[in-house]
Computed example of a mutant assay.
Amino acid sequence: MSGTKLFRLFSFIIIICSTINVVEANDLKEDFSRPQSIPFPASNPYTVEKAALGKMLFFDPRLSRNRNMSCATCHNPSFGWEDATQTATGSQNTRLDRHSPTIINAAWGERFFWDGRAGSLEEQAKGPIESDVEMNLPLEEAVARLKQVPRYNDWFSRVFGSEGISGDTIAKAIATYERTIVSGQAPFDRWVNGDEQAISNVAKRGFDTFVGKGKCASCHTGWNFTDQKFYDIGLSGEDEGRYVLTDKPTDKFAFKTPSLRNIGQRAPYMHDGRFKDLKSAIRHYVSGGISRASLSEKMMPVVLTESDISDIEQFLLSLTGTDSAVSLPLLPY
């Protein structure tokens, strides 16, 4: 074969390979494309008034026994809808065992809390209000308290009609508001949509490592970067996670895969807030975790360099969106 023909053959192979890589990259990007609308359940459809009422309740300390805590105490919009402390602080300054999970993109959730004990956002909304170590206010007392507020009576009548104020309508309003809390458009999203300048080359390498040899996307999947499942990732400690609920040996030390959206705002990390920064969290996965019977089969040592870890960190930081400022509501009186 002549040199000219050989050159043309090599050029053709390079073009074909490049085309395949572009197609594969575009297909991969589509797996992480944002949805176009927020899903609301038929049993609790969205209305503007219901979300507005839910926002008032979310920020209202009157839903706690001592009138000194609200949902926003642990789910602060300034800290990625978490609270920036290692573990949450509950009633009477009680230090809790777990870090406050974010409520960002909760509309797409399947089960809630780190151990998945709530099957809906409505069920989740009731939990902290009644928990004796959190807001510590039985729902019947919360209902009686709100009924003493004339304008809350007006709001509940407007939104729920004759059903008025009840434990269920309180939960429905809060859950509706929580479903509207969606991470804003992030640099990563602009890159997915075709803007090659939206993220750095370092972040692009980090994405390649994240979905490739790092194997991070085996659990952190889809646009919200979570498969909604529960795994033992080999962390030390006595908290047995989902096992306490299910009594299944495979659920020992298992906790929910968190979303990675706005992750740069949400330190510290893990269910117990043990890691202060993203690199520390990534290094744990690289190590493969503690070897034990319940350890997820997805957990195994991964060969990554410090440069790889830095690249993944930069990719993760590109998932933080430009969110609108959250204004405090005027509470009914």
Rank of each mutant, 00 (worst) to 15 (best):
L295S: 01
W191A: 08
T221H: 03
R151I: 07
Q228R: 11
L6M: 04
Y285R: 01
K50T: 07
L28P: 10
F12K: 07
V302Y: 04
D232R: 03
A217E: 10
F160M: 06
F210I: 14
T87F: 06
R111A: 14
R266C: 06
L28S: 15
R266L: 09
R292D: 03
M135S: 02
P301A: 09
A293V: 01
Y46L: 10
G54R: 01
N21T: 09
S294D: 01
I263L: 08
Q197Y: 12
Q197L: 10
R65M: 13
G222I: 06
D132C: 07
R274G: 05
S2H: 08
T102Y: 05
I16P: 08
S287K: 05
T221F: 10
R65P: 06
R283C: 02
R242S: 04
Y46M: 09
A293K: 04
L53T: 05
F253K: 03
R111H: 12
K204H: 01
C74W: 13
S287R: 09
L331W: 00
T305S: 15
E49S: 11
A106T: 14
S218A: 12
G127Y: 09
M299D: 01
E238N: 02
P150T: 03
S318T: 03
T4F: 10
Q92W: 10
N76L: 05
F210G: 08
F255Y: 11
T47A: 02
S318F: 05
D239Y: 03
F7V: 05
K248G: 00
L295V: 04
T305I: 11
R266P: 03
H271T: 00
T87H: 03
T320Y: 01
D115M: 11
T87E: 06
F156S: 05
K50M: 11
F188P: 11
Q92G: 07
I14H: 01
V326Q: 07
V326F: 03
D239E: 07
P249A: 10
M56S: 14
S318K: 01
I165E: 00
W191M: 10
T85C: 08
G54T: 02
S64Y: 11
L137F: 14
H99D: 12
F40C: 09
M270P: 00
Q228W: 11
N262D: 15
R179I: 14
E196K: 15
G264L: 05
D323K: 00
Y152M: 09
A325N: 11
F7N: 00
T85Q: 14
S91L: 04
P258S: 05
E238T: 06
I103P: 04
M270I: 05
A203S: 13
K248H: 03
D277E: 04
S43V: 11
G214P: 10
I129T: 12
